[in-house]
Design a protein around this nucleic acid. Structure first.
Lengths: 203, 203
DNA sequence: GTCTATACACTGATAGAC
DNA sequence: GTCTATCAGTGTATAGAC
């Protein structure tokens, strides 16, 4: 009733929501969409079964929420790195460094993983595939112009810029899988290796 | 009873088995392990539900069979390309060409996909993760020495050879995902781009 | 070898008590 | 806001007829 009460309620609600989301991210990234049950999410979050349905109308909604967050935060991260001053090639190298430094370690790699899950198992989820494709197009819209510019200065490799970006993003997705396997090999990956897909052979 | 009868039976059995396996590969690669039902496999193969269980004791066995085939045929393909005469770098380039030319197109890419499915959803399948890790170690055993040799001739990039191979294999896995999405972008990928992860910057 | 029918367990989602 | 109980639907696996 009192203002303080509603504020506390909102805080508690946000915390519970974050708790459930975090648990769902772990489960989806480990068992896939169909392999994850609402019971599993609830138990993993330390919450009751019914409470999950209080925050999300369906399992699909939970998954969509995570996929959207993954897409938007990836786009935001790209924007942040690419909007800082520097040449096109410097920006691309800086993004590789950011991926190796943070995005491909810990929880962030799980977001790349559920993107993979979404792409390879979402045939039954109405419109999700299309939604991802539309938002992922932004990746290309941001990176392709940079590659074209870096090709003019001779820093990026010649060839179809879209193909280069496609290979670069494929490498990122593949590395997220490597991180997930946890052999320790992922710690040896350097920003230089990541950029090598785009880099021109020097003469 | 007669010799001819048993031979015909064996032939029919092999064909039905191949039919079910092929249908299962399609379903698993599109819906993932948990998203694929035995009913779906049966219908997709044009066979009855019970018949699938006549050929495989369980859904897990079907999946294992496909994963094993994927692993062994990938290893066999590597051996074939790498045992042909040539320098270490030539062999690596030849393998990239083979991947772009055949392995990453059509049905072959589905085998790379179920490897991804297996790695990211097989937490519930006892021992599968370990089995894959053990067999996938062969990839490294075959490729790392080649990279080390190509580093000596200055053709491969300097740096940890294991990290280079890990990035190379990650790129392959990522590209299989690209093929699956079917944007048409995968057709622009060249062997040169694939090899760029391993290639040394020329001086 | 091939098919249909079914037992049994589990999952997603809802209802209603506190 | 949080929990337990419950229902309808689906999935794996088996049994048994042909």
């Amino acid at each position: 009733m009192s203002p303080r009460g509603t504020v506390q309620n909102a805080a508690m609600r946000n915390q519970t929501l974050a708790n459930i989301s975090s648990a769902a991210l772990r489960m989806f990234s480990e068992f896939g969409y169909h392999g994850t049950t609402m019971k599993l999410i609830a138990e993993s979050a330390g919450q009751s079964y019914g409470l999950v349905y209080h925050y999300f109308p369906s399992k699909e909604a939970v998954f969509r929420h995570l996929v959207d967050f993954a897409l938007e935060s990836t786009i935001a991260g790209m924007h942040a790195v690419l909007s800082a001053p520097g040449t096109a090639w410097e920006k691309l190298e800086r993004y590789s460094a950011m991926l190796v430094g943070s995005a491909l370690t810990g929880d962030s790699s799980r977001y790349f993983l559920i993107m993979t899950q979404a792409l390879t198992q979402a045939k039954g989820i109405e419109g999700l595939q299309r939604h991802i494709k539309a938002r992922a197009a932004v990746f290309y819209e941001l990176l392709v112009p940079l590659v074209i510019q870096a090709q003019k200065t001779g820093e990026a490799a010649q060839g179809d810029p879209e193909a280069l970006v496609a290979a670069y993003l494929s490498l990122v997705q593949g590395l997220a899988l490597l991180v997930y396997q946890g052999n320790g090999l992922e710690r040896k990956i350097t920003a230089e290796i990541m950029s090598s897909v785009l880099r021109a052979p020097r003469h």
